[in-house]
């Protein structure tokens, strides 16, 4: 058999597994583009978890009570853990952690644009947990069924931890809307600023999405950007109403026939602009990541030195 025939046979077997809803595991043969596509998506997801710690970390010393501070700290710790799960899943595809970090820091790899928006007030800690984690959950629940085994299992683990994130965020909003008029206004302002960027988290319309078709065929993605976004719009409408806040989308209207909310159009210019690097915080986020990484270099060096010393001792003893 020629190597070409071999590849097409392997490709056939691969597609057969995908169609049969079987997972692809690290040692299985897979098309190079499937591998690349996954590395792109999983590492981007990992970077988002890690960069996402910055806007929240900024509020640790400004939490209104020790209790809120402990909760926020716990949530941020979870996000660091999610980054780890995802980097590890990507590493099973043959890319190293260093390569991924380098791609992030040089700007070749992306992370969720939402984290390029600044967190300005304590209410933003509420809106981020509720809306940003909420949107992430809708996406991650769907990805529990992704075709790559390690990614799917990582998603299952992450989803178990996420519910607390969204609830603590909503809990902050509830407290604010039941507080003084100023506090309620702060919650409204935060909702206004985060609602649309949260919708953008689902990516461009299906008709505009470059990676979508192949990702759906390979079952890396299980639902389209627009379908996931619709789910989020639907579930969020009643949550906004319950808070007694004004909905930021003035065109939002229940569509009896569709069984969904119709909604206004996203400002796609803003979306593309932030992706292109012109958001409020793009530069700051990367600079901070690089700074933290460089300042932590001595820890990594110490670990390697300690390891070498221990091994030298062991050979000496042997």
């Amino acid at each position: 058999m020629s190597s070409e025939q071999q590849t097409s046979l392997q490709e056939k077997q691969f597609m057969h597994k995908i169609k049969a809803e079987e997972k692809i595991e690290p040692k299985d043969w897979m098309p190079e583009k499937y591998r690349k596509n996954l590395i792109r998506q999983i590492s981007q997801h990992a970077h988002s978890e890690v960069i996402g710690m910055q806007p929240e970390g900024n509020f640790l010393t400004r939490a209104p009570s020790l209790r809120r501070k402990a909760i926020l700290l716990s949530k941020i710790q979870d996000e660091a853990g999610h980054g780890l799960y995802l980097y590890s899943a990507a590493e099973t595809l043959g890319i190293s952690r260093d390569e991924m970090i380098e791609a992030l820091q040089s700007g070749r790899a992306k992370y969720a644009s939402i984290f390029n928006y600044p967190a300005l007030t304590w209410a933003d800690m509420g809106a981020i947990g509720w809306l940003v984690d909420g949107a992430a959950i809708v996406n991650q629940v769907s990805l529990q069924r992704t075709s790559y085994g390690p990614y799917a299992r990582g998603m299952i683990r992450i989803c178990k931890e996420e519910s607390f994130h969204q609830r603590q965020g909503y809990d902050i909003m509830l407290t604010l809307v039941n507080g003084s008029p100023e506090q309620k206004a702060m919650a409204q302002d935060s909702l206004n600023r985060f609602y649309w960027p949260a919708l953008m988290m689902f990516g461009p319309h299906d008709s505009e999405s470059a990676h979508s078709a192949k990702s759906m065929e390979w079952k890396i993605k299980r639902e389209t950007n627009d379908d996931l976004r619709q789910k989020f719009i639907d579930q969020t409408a009643s949550q906004i109403e319950f808070l007694g806040l004004e909905h930021p989308d003035k065109e939002l209207k229940w569509n009896e026939e569709r069984g969904h909310y119709d909604s206004g159009e996203i400002d796609w210019d803003e979306f593309h602009n932030v992706i292109a690097g012109n958001g409020h915080c793009n530069r700051q986020r990367l600079e901070h990541h690089i700074k933290a990484h460089e300042e932590g270099a001595w820890v990594r060096e110490a670990l390697v030195a300690y390891n070498a010393k221990k091994q030298a001792k062991q050979t000496e003893a042997a």
Binding site: R67, A70, I71, S74, D78, G134, S163, F164, Q166, R167, Q168, Y170, D171, L174, Q235, S238, Q239, F242
Partner: peptide, 16 residues
């Protein structure tokens, strides 16, 4: 507080 059940939300929004 690391557990979702720590946050008691009203029934209307308790499905999150």
């Amino acid at each position: 507080y690391r557990h979702a059940t720590y946050y008691t939300l009203p029934d209307a929004v308790n499905n999150m």
